[in-house]
Amino acid sequence: MNVVAWEHILAVAGGIVVFLVASFALRADWKTPGLDNQVFKLMLGLLALGGILATLTGLQIIGKS
């Protein structure tokens, strides 16, 4: 296994973890009030999107070198 393969695997693993964590946090926070929490929710949503992107990159479905 070379470095690049490890990088792919870690990216997939990290991406999935981020997506799951962000989704759970988003669900837990869904009904919280307050301006800061609204912003947090937006950020968590984007973070979940980031997790998906990282996973897909690791799976070499998207991304250009």
Binding site: A11, G15, G58, G63
Partner: peptide, 11 residues
């Protein structure tokens, strides 16, 4: 830049 490292870094 290499996509593999980029993806890992993003994760």
């Amino acid at each position: 830049p290499a996509i593999a490292l980029g993806g890992l870094n993003a994760a």
